[in-house]
Design a protein around this nucleic acid. Structure first.
Lengths: 185, 185
DNA sequence: ACAACCATGTAAGCGGTTACATGATTCA
DNA sequence: TGAATCATGTAACCGCTTACATGGTTGT
């Protein structure tokens, strides 16, 4: 039972869902592909944590709908009282930055601009998720409160990222304009 | 050649270093264990990207010092012109949050407090790294400029994290104080 | 004595990505 | 006709973690 398994179990405490739908719903909080999710669901079914039924559809392909069992809920509750792990920092941009001196500042400018675009798309993504939440989500008693606070975390992180990109660009511009000025004198 | 390999190559363009030292230097930017780094260095040596020599020490165990070769520098330069990948978001706390409704708000309060402590230790860590950089690091022309901006990114991210934790605690407190007030009436 | 730090390695196993494989429906 | 979305699976491979393994020095 890895972390992703518990996340899927958690989503299934809300609604009966298909593997495909779970993949889409877990994406904003934990990046996972269908090839990882389907085997996990099968194994949890074998272990009696989930029950499943096939639902026939006419307009779309048939799907397998999963539901949590009591045993699954118990497993989830046990997890709640274990320590929460902290995320490992592993961003390629960091490594690019620490060895950018082997090349020129133009490539660095492009990395920062691309990253700013990415942060902006992330910001729009989390804002859209927040907009789609029911109004009651802002109340700590709501079942959507968790989504509300993690999506807000997403927007805050994205905003900080954008801010950082602007800051780096500002430093670069100031430096190279100054150099340009001294050269023309 | 994975991302970590290029990061090690980049660090080695500055100084000749041992595997142990590289492990310590890469940690702030890319979390990696010695068991992953040593085999990578061996393979890069076999591929002619690095050269190595053993240095005898009297007070400490002997160490193997690595240096980048011209072929290694070329490999690093090629990498500089490939697209930068974006980090995958995978934080256990997010998954805990989205299924916290199966349990009580007390456990959630503990997760947030623990995470705030972690962010605070991260902040102190990056501030210490910044303090140890030479003054010239703030100049985009300095070889330490990359370190300066990524460590600053670390402090900004940590500060945002702390802010978020306070915000969540504020929401929780307001809600449960209000509930307490209505109950005593 | 014991812990902490320095220093280097190997092996097993898990988590995640990429690619392979199939197939229906809808829309441009 | 071709691309996009829905839908489910398997197999190979890579990256990273955990554990195993060794051994010297320094400080409490």
């Amino acid at each position: 039972m890895n972390i992703l398994s518990y996340g899927l179990l958690g989503l299934l405490t809300r609604d009966e869902s298909s593997g495909y739908d779970l993949m889409l719903r877990i994406q904003p909080h934990w990046q996972a592909k269908h090839s990882q999710i389907y085997p996990i669901l099968s194994r949890m079914e074998d272990d009696g944590l989930l029950s499943a039924r096939w639902v026939e559809q006419t307009d779309k392909p048939d799907k397998k709908m999963y539901r949590v069992t009591d045993k699954g809920i118990q497993k989830l509750l046990d997890w709640m009282y274990t320590p929460v792990s902290t995320p490992a920092l592993r961003d390629e941009l960091n490594l690019r930055m620490i060895c950018f001196q082997v090349t020129n500042p133009i490539v660095m400018k492009r990395w920062v601009d691309e990253r700013r675009d990415w942060f902006e798309s992330r910001l729009a993504y989390y804002e859209a998720l927040l907009a789609n939440l029911p109004e009651e989500a802002v109340q700590p008693g709501s079942p959507y409160f968790g989504e509300y606070i993690v999506n807000t975390k997403g927007t805050m992180t994205a905003k900080t990222g954008i801010e950082w990109c602007h800051w780096v660009n500002g430093l670069m511009n100031a430096h190279y304009q100054e150099r340009e000025a001294t050269r023309t004198h």
